[in-house]
């Protein structure tokens, strides 16, 4: 019995060591990012260096970001928030509508619709970039109008991502609907007063995922907004600091900008993590 205990203690110790190692590896890049963001621009320039801890700490880089005479960073940040909020809101609504129809109602063409969307989803998204760009241009939603344009594109196709939400609806017993219908409730009434209140976790999950995606959208956003600095989002604006040689010494500024982007998204994610886990787990099992 004693040997079992010591064995277990050793097992736990090994477990802790592995977990601590993993944590260090996981956190290292973020620590680096934060440290570099505080490196003094004035004394150590803003380029790449091969040491981790700055020789002198300062807020130079953050000051730069907030100085709108030098950079449009705040504008990009605002754009990204606008896109994220609208996409999150509209995409959730659309996915709820689609999921309810497909989960609860039986109509001609339902299976066809689902199969068709499944097939459409197998085409790579970037394939159609040039076409989407010119489509948006017809509506005047590129360059100066890129923000609504990006929202439109993300929302328009979001119906195809109904899987997780529909999977959740499928788990709500149909008997509830039937009982309500016998009481004379219409489909729309059931949807608004029964299903939606019961779906809080999945609504939060959908909204959270939709909210996080635009922060990372570099590819299409840069394609739609090119040549118009004020309609960039943070990803487009800041990746230029890394990839374009016009921006010498912007590395620490990139780090600072990255920290400011990561903080709100990370906090939001941490608060809503419970729902996220519920969503991905459910989604994984349903496929």
């Amino acid at each position: 019995m004693k040997s079992y205990k010591t064995k277990r203690a050793i097992g736990n110790a090994v477990g802790y060591i592995i977990l601590i190692l993993i944590s260090i590896i996981w956190l290292f890049p973020f620590v680096g990012l934060v440290l570099q963001s505080f490196r003094s621009y004035a004394t150590e320039y803003g380029g790449m260096v091969d040491y981790l801890v700055p020789k002198q700490f300062s807020l130079d880089n953050y000051k730069f970001l907030f100085d709108s005479s030098q950079t449009n960073y705040l504008m990009w940040y605002k754009n990204t928030i606008i896109i994220a909020v609208f996409v999150s809101l509209l995409q959730t609504i659309i996915q709820l509508c689609v999921s309810y129809s497909l989960s609860r109602m039986r109509f001609a063409g339902r299976t066809f619709l689902m199969r068709f969307w499944l097939i459409l989803g197998m085409f790579p998204g970037f394939l159609t970039m040039i076409c989407l760009y010119f489509l948006l241009k017809q509506f005047g939603l590129t360059q100066a109008g890129a923000i609504p344009g990006l929202i439109l594109v993300s929302v328009a196709s979001s119906g195809m991502g109904y899987y997780v939400c529909k999977g959740y609806f499928d788990t709500i017993p149909k008997a509830l609907d039937e009982a309500a219908m016998i009481d004379g409730a219409t489909r729309s009434r059931i949807f608004f007063t029964m299903i939606i209140p019961m779906s809080k976790p999945i609504i939060i999950y959908t909204a959270l995922v939709a909210f996080m995606a635009p922060w990372c959208d570099y590819v299409f956003a840069s394609y739609v907004a090119f040549g118009h600095d004020t309609s960039y989002n943070v990803a487009v604006g800041m990746t230029r600091w890394v990839w374009t040689n016009d921006y010498q010494g912007y590395f620490t500024r990139f780090c600072a900008g990255g920290v400011l982007v990561a903080i709100p998204v990370t906090l939001l994610f941490m608060f809503l993590q419970k729902y996220y886990v519920e969503g991905v787990t459910g989604g994984a099992v349903k496929g």
Partner: peptide, 25 residues
């Protein structure tokens, strides 16, 4: 809003997917 509620719900998403996914593909 009842028997044909799916038509109401799906009208917008299906149009959106048509214009911004099917047509470009």
């Amino acid at each position: 809003f009842d028997r044909n509620f799916h038509k109401t719900l799906l009208a917008l998403p299906v149009t959106g997917i048509f214009v911004f996914t099917v047509l470009p593909i």
